[in-house]
């Protein structure tokens, strides 16, 4: 059974329809890259999956449970799916360790000692065990993003949504974040990532989704999507054809 089932999802902002009937099924352990021009709807799709945007029609189901826009269903869904943002969104008044502990304690009512143990383990997993007591402003962008990954992992999600998580980083910091994601992929985490890192998408992902004007324009294994693009739009996007 698919872990995430996206069926005929439509979404408009005002009169602007940004998602025009999206169908994607994601199996457990899959690593999916969503690529496309800005405005193609890829970030919106990701945000719909964990309910940060409401969909107008169609359905999204995670592990068999339908996404419904009420508080109770949304929270149940968000316990299954973590999200990592382009702008990190760490809590600036809390240390890295406390950032990772907070939702465990507030949402899952985990005792402080256990939450701290989990936080140390997760920070260690992203190579930042020594930054437990550092505040976000004392960390580099790459380190902040790795803390954000640890924070999402501490909730033990079944899948992670990554929304352009390296786009706000200096080039030399991109690799340290991608290395962590690569490790997660190797451990079997289900990942849906909107990304502009084509090399990473080619090397690590099981499938690549090319979105164009609110539709899934092409979908397939990375070697097919990158090696043998079928549509002129994808060819143009990949720079294989003069504009």
């Amino acid at each position: 059974m698919s872990l995430i089932e996206i069926t005929e999802v439509r979404k408009s902002f005002g009169t602007n329809e940004v998602l025009k009937g999206i169908n994607i099924d994601v199996d457990p352990g899959e690593v999916i890259a969503i690529i496309g021009k800005s405005g193609s709807g890829k970030s919106t799709l990701l945000r719909c999956i964990n309910g940060l945007e409401t969909i107008d029609s169609g359905s999204i189901a995670v592990a068999g449970a339908q996404l419904l826009p009420d508080e109770l269903h949304l929270r149940a869904l968000r316990l299954k799916i973590g999200m990592i943002f382009q702008s990190f969104n760490l809590f600036p008044h809390l240390t890295a360790g406390k950032n990772v502990m907070l939702s465990q304690m507030v949402v899952k009512k985990v005792p402080t000692a256990d939450a701290e143990a989990t936080a140390r383990k997760m920070l260690d997993r992203v190579g930042l065990a020594h930054k437990f007591d550092a505040y976000p402003e004392e960390l580099s962008g790459g380190q902040q993003q790795r803390v954000a990954i640890a924070r999402a992992l501490a909730m033990q999600p079944m899948a992670l949504l990554c929304d352009e998580i390296t786009s706000a980083l200096d080039p030399e910091l991109v690799n340290e974040v991608l290395a962590v994601v690569k490790e997660l992929a190797a451990e079997g985490m289900t990942l849906l990532m909107v990304t502009h890192e084509m090399r990473f998408a080619r090397d690590v992902c099981t499938r690549v989704v090319f979105m164009h004007q609110g539709r899934v324009h092409e979908i397939g294994a990375p070697q097919d999507v990158f090696g043998d693009p079928k549509t002129p739009e994808l060819k143009q996007f990949l720079g294989l054809q003069a504009a």
Partner: peptide, 23 residues
């Protein structure tokens, strides 16, 4: 408050009131 703070709280399954109080 940057919108991302509310979204980060929500994506961690915190309720709006929990996000307000803790974040």
């Amino acid at each position: 408050t940057p919108r991302g703070q509310f979204e980060a709280g929500a994506s961690l399954a915190m309720s709006p009131i929990q996000t307000f109080w803790h974040v």
